[in-house]
Amino acid sequence: MRVTAWYWAGLIGLALISICSLFVGVIDLSASDLLHDKEALRVLGISRFPRTMAAIIAGAAMAVSGSVMQMLVRNRFVEPMTAGTGQGAALGILIVTLFFPAASIFVKMAIATVTALVASLGFLVIVRRLPPTQPLLVPLVGLIYGGIIGAAVVFVAYQADLLQYISVWLNGAFSGVLRGRYELLWLAAGGAVLTYFAADQFAIVGMGQTITTSLGLDYKQIVLVGLIAISAISALTVTTVGIIPFVGLIVPNIVSRLFGDNLRRTLPLVAITGAGLTLVSDIIGRIVRYPFEVPVGTVLGVIGAVVFLWLLFRKPQYA
């Protein structure tokens, strides 16, 4: 099988990138240090390993939720982080910080998930009113919609003097990831794995409401479940590392062009590619202005926008 071979290739590639990631950073580490230097092991355990895992999980989870969202909305140019879900999560975190500063991290998460869900439902309601003959209108409306929620977040933050947080949430970075500060992301990883069990259902929903009902499935229920999954994953990602743009958009597009839309087959590849792209972007951000760092959100903003433009202007694959 062609795809299984690619799984292995992808996994091996990801492993190699991860090893690079473990040894790139301000404090010099080399493989031989690990054998006798306790300090080196400590750096690895507290900073490098968590950071690498955070990039892998966030990238994979965002790519998977982008895939799912593209099926739910039936449009290839949307993703949670540019269509309001991520901004909705940021709004939720802001609300918690303002009104319940003492709330536990789980309360924070729950509220962020709810606001992200409300924002995504709002987007879906708008999209349902758009004509199916104008597919590019959907991402356009999504970008503006996300921008409006983002502006609302900035407005509130200005009034409450919380601007320094805003730049953290609205532009993702892994520089703050340490042991004990990223573990919530494992929940996002769990969410991404759970969506895999519903891969067939999401693929069917991507074929439209008629076929979904005809195959005996409850369309609205699957859409709602999908949105909840996307919102939870986005909320977890935004809370821990901030908005990671474009991964959810470009990775599913590229994988779909190469291997099709059968999610049960392609989702693992989507996850691996998303993890690889995010990790590579983070490594670029770490070395390009060594010893300072460029946030992964900025690096991905450049890479993602260029690939997005290419996707927009490539020859249409079907008439």
Binding site: R74, P132, T133, P135, A203, G206, M207, G208, T210, I211, T213, S214, L215, G216, L217, D218, S256, R257, G260, D261, N262, Y318
Partner: peptide, 23 residues
């Protein structure tokens, strides 16, 4: 149930622009 019906009746929708990338 919806699933019971799905073994009894199927519908072919009108063709749309959105084509899934499936074999």
């Amino acid at each position: 149930s919806n699933r019971q019906l799905a073994k009894q009746i199927s519908i072919l929708p009108q063709m749309t622009e959105h084509v899934p990338r499936l074999s």
